[in-house]
Design a protein around this nucleic acid. Structure first.
Lengths: 100, 100
DNA sequence: CGATCATATGCCTTGACAGGAATATGCATT
DNA sequence: AATGCATATTCCTGTCAAGGCATATGATCG
């Protein structure tokens, strides 16, 4: 699953936000989200297949933690658009205005 | 349609990239994408409903341009995750290591 | 080994969305 | 007014993903 598709789901965005607090077992996420356990488990699987979370096995528990690498790629995807709201575009616009 | 859902589609991401070059009529996008015209029109409608593009009517043409506001929100959504790859997390990690 | 806890997987139904093809709308030009 | 161009809308169909529910797996403890 692609990063874009993974973060398109609000439940998965909630999970990522919870994981900003650090590594957490699946059960803690189930409780925090107040959703059925299989539901959360499937979303965690999707996030893992997108590379957004990593799993550490600790006895019967699976400890999930945030893996930011795909978000770095998202950040890079966003980069060329930043010119459109950081003022650089205004300078380009002025230039085009002058040459018109 | 939400920003996250809008950019989850690769065709729509291609459209946004094309619009970085500036305002363009729908026909130019159809040609550049080499996709059926109704297909492109529907994606443009989706992008517009997400607030990602704005439309300027010029006679029979519809001129589409990039509206970065939702991307700013995406940028802000991403902000709290940046700490996970900019070194601030390392400092936090060190702190937690010490207090453990 | 049996029971129990934590988590994952399978099946089913439903709803959303993309693509294709045909057609409708709206503006312009003669 | 009629034609033609640019674009949008509708209908249909297939696909994919999410939720609910039941059940399976795997580890631990007595």
């Amino acid at each position: 699953m692609s990063t874009f598709t993974a973060i398109a789901d609000p439940v998965r965005r909630d999970i990522l936000a919870l994981l900003r607090q650090g590594e957490q077992p699946a059960g803690a996420l189930v409780e925090a989200l107040a959703l059925p356990q299989p539901n959360v488990s499937k979303h965690l699987k999707a996030l893992h297949s997108a590379g957004l979370v990593s799993i550490r096995v600790d006895g019967p528990r699976r400890l999930y933690s945030l893996d930011p690498a795909p978000l770095v790629e998202l950040d890079q995807w966003l980069a060329p658009y930043r010119d459109f709201w950081t003022g650089k575009l205004d300078a380009l616009g002025d230039h085009l205005m002058r040459t018109d």
